[in-house]
Simulated scan of single mutants.
Amino acid sequence: MPHTQQEPFVYASYPDLAGKRVVITGGGTGIGSELVTAFAGQGARVWFLDIAAEASRALAESLAGAIHPPRFVHCDLTDLGALAAAFAGIESEAGGVDILLNNAANDDRHEIDDVTPEYWENRMAVNLRHQFFCAQSAVRMMRKNGKGGVILNFGSISWHLASSQLSLYMTAKAAIEGLSRGMARDLGGDDIRVNSVIPGAVRTPRQQALWHTPEEEARILAGQCLRERVEMQDVAALSLFLASNNARRCSGREYFVDAGWYGA
């Protein structure tokens, strides 16, 4: 049985993150909303991109008391023109980007026989393509500023476990790890670090509502080394570390926060 955690979660403090210009994709809900909360709590200047306007505005309002209140930028990341315009707006306002967290994704289930070419293209646009083009925009600014930077691309435990009804999602998430390694090699000379964050079965409102039934939760816990659910704060805590100078020699690797999930 899982243990009951008695103490509230408290993030470590990373003074070097204060004032850093941070862009987070998919920041309005789920893991992304916790990333926004955690980085704002470090005193970073946060811009978050999302298509979910109502939830994003509510999040921004809830964090209005932060040292630098996070800024919501409405953006459909599958629209590359809108994506480029969003980054241009951030550059105009902030002068550049120091840290990019490519978090946005959608894990809708599907059957192989139902996949059309149009659905394939949509899933790649939703889960993979924008990570490259967001990074491309951020890298241009990082190089211009000449102070290096950090890119965190978010993958998934799903393809490491060979999950069902997620073939296209797993294809995209597997590719992200290759993308991160390639970028880390290409950008290391510019002092830009690139890593993949690999969350496990994170307890988010969406997952709880759609997939994580009591039976599924029991299966997840049985497959993990640690018999505690992974929370959004666990993913954010790892991300804070990897974005900070404490991880200054970490690049081109995959960092798992999955409670040691090897399947069940």
Rank of each mutant, 00 (worst) to 15 (best):
R109H: 02
R109I: 02
R109W: 04
R109L: 04
H110D: 00
H110V: 00
H110Q: 01
E111P: 01
E111S: 03
I112D: 01
I112E: 00
D113H: 05
D113K: 07
D114V: 02
D114K: 08
V115T: 03
V115K: 00
V115N: 01
P117Y: 11
P117C: 08
P117S: 07
E118S: 06
E118M: 06
E121R: 11
N122L: 11
N122G: 03
N122F: 05
R123I: 03
R123V: 03
R123M: 05
M124Y: 06
A125G: 11
V126H: 03
V126Y: 03
V126T: 06
L128E: 05
L128W: 07
L128F: 09
L128S: 06
R129F: 03
R129K: 15
R129C: 03
H130E: 10
H130N: 10
H130L: 04
Q131A: 08
Q131M: 14
F132I: 13
F132C: 14
F132N: 11
F132H: 12
C134P: 08
A135M: 10
A135S: 15
A135K: 07
Q136C: 14
Q136F: 15
Q136P: 13
S137M: 12
S137Y: 10
S137P: 05
S137F: 11
A138Q: 06
A138F: 04
A138V: 09
V139M: 15
V139F: 14
V139K: 15
V139L: 14
R140E: 14
R140V: 09
M141P: 10
M141Y: 13
R143I: 09
K144D: 11
K144E: 14
K144Y: 07
K144Q: 14
N145F: 02
N145V: 06
G146W: 04
G146R: 08
G146Y: 07
K147Q: 12
K147A: 10
G149K: 09
G149V: 12
G149H: 11
G149E: 07
G149N: 11
V150M: 05
V150N: 13
V150T: 14
I151Q: 04
I151T: 04
L152V: 05
L152S: 01
